[in-house]
Simulated assay, not measured.
Amino acid sequence: MFDEVISFIKNINPERNFIPLHEPVFSGNEKKYLNECIDSGYVSSVGAYVTAFEEAIAAYTGAKRAVVVVNGTQALHLACVVAGVGKEDEVITQPLTFIATANAISYTGAACIFVDVDKDTMGMSPESLKLFLETNAVIRDGKCFNKTTNKQIKACIPMHTFGHPLRIDEIATICKQYHITLIEDAAESIGSTYKGKATGRFGLMGTLSFNGNKIITSGGGGAIITDDDAVADLAKHLSTQAKIPHTWEYAHDHIGYNYRMPNLNAALALAQLENLDSFIEKKRALAIIYKTFFEKKGFNFVSEPEHAFSNYWLHAIILKDRTERDAFLNESNANGVMTRPIWNLMNKAPMFAQCQCTNLDNAQWLEDRVVNIPSSVTYKENESN
């Protein structure tokens, strides 16, 4: 049924029996920086590459500060802690996301509230967020409370799906109106911008991921970016077990976390960041190739939304229904082309089944239809036609 599609994808990736969804590319200074790191003896969470990578991430995104940590999930958790999210609080997020978003909220003891997404961005819908708050929220003493649960709605965490920016400026305006802290889950969207501004920079904090399958990787790693020095200082302090700096004393003033990125990972990540723009250029070129092909064949290829510049981390197509989606997944994977469906909605997971939700028609529609296709930057441009 999908022979022509599978053949086309294989032709972009010649001489390979198995085509992965996404694989890292190490073509720059990775080995050089790793060797320098090993030679220095500083391979753990103290070392020159940690500082260098933090400064480079801040400069690349335009943020004032960056704090690097062990992975994107812990970046989200730490951001929630710094924002004051705790037990008995609530955090608004989207159901169509990788589970790390909901898990990180849960680590604080807070409960998730799920609002719908937009079909064109696959990210949180400003209309759904606004409708939920108009119906359920009340402001008391400059704080937002849920009229149904009487709990404070402390934060909102939208996620930029597959690197495509959502309408984050509208979300930011709504959050400000309702005194809700905005934390962006930009784990998939480093290098993406919305109306010329980097994702992750529209709220108090943004979080990034450098997992092995991301557009740049440190094996494992994440970061918090912010324009607030006090926020950055607290995040950095908490990530190092909240140890008060001293030559020999072990004194701690908060419940802290062992979340600091090791120097080895930072060395790898810094070399990767140097090639990020070229990776994005290749991904955007591949997007054009895919879009041209799939539109000719009557498929809906997911393109960057209006006002957005996307890194196209993972390419995606939209099938006509779940039956066609499953048929494509079965046939492509059986023929050595790795494809994956978009995530199951978070509100369907047993640990989040009791969470408050809005109407989730768009999220359900996308869950039934969206499939990711091979998205590595190693494709052969001259083999694409």
Rank of each mutant, 00 (worst) to 15 (best):
C156W: 03
F299C: 01
F2Y: 14
Y60F: 13
F279M: 11
A110T: 07
I318Q: 10
Q241H: 07
C80Q: 09
G84E: 08
N359Q: 10
K154S: 13
I342R: 02
P165R: 07
C156D: 03
E383C: 15
K283H: 10
Y259Q: 01
G28I: 05
E23D: 01
A251R: 08
T51G: 15
A269C: 14
I157S: 13
G221P: 07
R167I: 08
N29E: 13
L208D: 03
E36Y: 10
G47L: 10
F210P: 10
E249H: 12
E127C: 08
G298K: 00
F328K: 02
L270E: 09
G219T: 07
T199G: 05
N333K: 03
Q177F: 04
N150M: 12
Q74K: 11
N382E: 13
G222S: 08
Y107D: 03
A52C: 06
H164E: 09
S106N: 02
S40I: 06
I113A: 12
S303E: 14
F2S: 09
T135L: 11
H254N: 04
E55R: 11
Q356Y: 03
S7I: 05
A230S: 14
A102G: 07
T121Y: 01
A102C: 09
T339P: 05
F26H: 13
I157M: 14
I288L: 14
T161N: 11
H77W: 14
I168V: 12
I92Y: 02
I57R: 01
I318P: 01
A308D: 04
W365V: 00
H315M: 02
F210R: 07
C80N: 15
A172S: 11
I373L: 07
S44K: 11
I280A: 01
Q356S: 09
T148Q: 12
A327V: 00
N311P: 08
I6A: 04
E54K: 07
F53N: 01
A349Q: 06
V67A: 00
I180Q: 10
I38P: 06
R260I: 03
K291T: 14
N382D: 15
K31C: 07
K130N: 14
T173L: 13
V68D: 05
N344T: 10
E274T: 05
A66N: 09
E274Q: 12
F301H: 06
G28V: 01
F18A: 05
T217S: 15
T323P: 00
A48G: 06
A48M: 14
L131T: 13
A48C: 13
A75W: 05
Y33E: 14
R65K: 15
L21Q: 06
N311S: 04
R167S: 15
Y250T: 09
F294L: 02
N359D: 14
L268H: 03
V231H: 04
Q364G: 08
A349E: 14
L204Y: 02
I19P: 08
E134I: 00
G123W: 06
G221A: 05
L276W: 09
T149M: 03
N265K: 05
R65V: 06
T292S: 14
A102I: 01
M261W: 08
T148R: 12
E134R: 15
I38R: 10
A66D: 12
V302A: 00
N136H: 04
E188I: 03
D116M: 08
A58N: 06
V50F: 02
F309V: 12
F210W: 11
G219N: 00
M159W: 08
G41V: 06
D277L: 09
G212F: 10
Y178G: 04
A242H: 13
I183G: 02
Q94P: 05
A111N: 15
H179T: 04
A269G: 15
